[in-house]
Design a protein around this nucleic acid. Sequence first.
DNA 1: TTCCTTCGAATTGTCGACAATCGGAGGAAG
DNA 2: CTTCCTCCGATTGTCGACAATTCGAAGGAA
Lengths: 225, 225
Amino acid sequence: MLLSAPKQGTLADIASHRLAHSIVTGELVQGQKLNEAELAERFGMGRGPLREALRHMEGMRLVKRVPNAGTRVVILDHKTMSDLYAVREALEGMACRIAATQMTDEEIINLGVLLDNHEKQIEQEGGKVYAQSEGDLDFHYQIVRGSRNEMLMDLLGSEQYQLLRMCRYRTSRNAQRTRPALSQHRQIVEALAQRDGELAEMLMRRHIQGAWRSIREMIDKEEAV
Amino acid sequence: MLLSAPKQGTLADIASHRLAHSIVTGELVQGQKLNEAELAERFGMGRGPLREALRHMEGMRLVKRVPNAGTRVVILDHKTMSDLYAVREALEGMACRIAATQMTDEEIINLGVLLDNHEKQIEQEGGKVYAQSEGDLDFHYQIVRGSRNEMLMDLLGSEQYQLLRMCRYRTSRNAQRTRPALSQHRQIVEALAQRDGELAEMLMRRHIQGAWRSIREMIDKEEAV
DNA sequence: TTCCTTCGAATTGTCGACAATCGGAGGAAG
DNA sequence: CTTCCTCCGATTGTCGACAATTCGAAGGAA
């Protein structure tokens, strides 16, 4: 998992994770106002740690805060998602290009194994797309790690990606894209194995563009209703 | 200015700005441990708001925090800066390409005017590089705004750029690059005016690569001492 | 001398109470 | 009936005190 572990540590850290999870899964609805006292009691802590966690959420762009007027869950509208995917395309494209020269042979092989497992999962439990999403995020994150760029790992990893996960969670019902996505992943691994950074970047960019197109179509269809 | 205004608002916001400023300018030395009680008193506030501000700084990557062990000012080492400039190249390159199709004619003209002022400043007070840095950041930020991508504006604007400003501040003494930088800026505006996104992106990427090379050489020279 | 243990001061983490501010209900004037 | 003002409840912002934890120093044993 990408958001695991820190069930220990300061209360503020715990609150951060619970909040992020609640927002990503939609338990806290978009645009909903977050009442500090109520949340603090639900989490069994004072308002101090909770406020720190809210500040953290603000940095992650999961909430918007207005002084003296409370904080609200961010609203993932069309433009926000579009912007997100544009940024993602640029960053992950770069990560892929660099990873082609920086990853070890072993890491690339492991990437292939990851995809094998991923394929098995799809065949076994065809409908369970959530696992796919997680696996997919894992695949992307492994490549980002391969770039050896700490800032990129931060930006695309634990922090910034919560927004993407939120986006995914909302649109995880349409599973029809898992197959082509897996195929594209394999192409990317192939390019990495051949140490062809330019090709790997191009494939990754197209892959992300495809994902965005798929999501956009789904949203448009939803909004038509 | 990019970090102006919020001298009003919550104490936590004020503390955030004062902290960011102190860190960027080096008043708070890299790696220095930040004592909450001491800072709170210096800012004339309780530890509550200050802790929120520290959480904000953590999100900006200006400090590192370890539970139960305090927070320290981040250390801008060679790799961190390298990673930063790599990310910047990808993001600002993208911004530039999109801006070429999204900016209005008026905005591009204003960009040219900005450079004219910038040039005058250089001629008038040849040594004052700080103004150059600010102006330069302003130029880059105007282009990012031209991309109409809110996330990019967030990433490269008020938030993430503090790290870059910190980087700049340390290396602002070597002014010899202001001239070629201005020239490259003009080339970029030219490409934008011609609505040539690909060229604009390439020029911006080279411009940033050049800036990084300049900084790296300077650091290497410094480390040799 | 060197290493380990123990203790204590300093610092961080947390809470509850108080002050400041905002939004809305309700009433008065036009 | 509308508009504006006033007041009140609710929520956010802030503080001071207390609990928990860590780091380092002092002291003793090998």
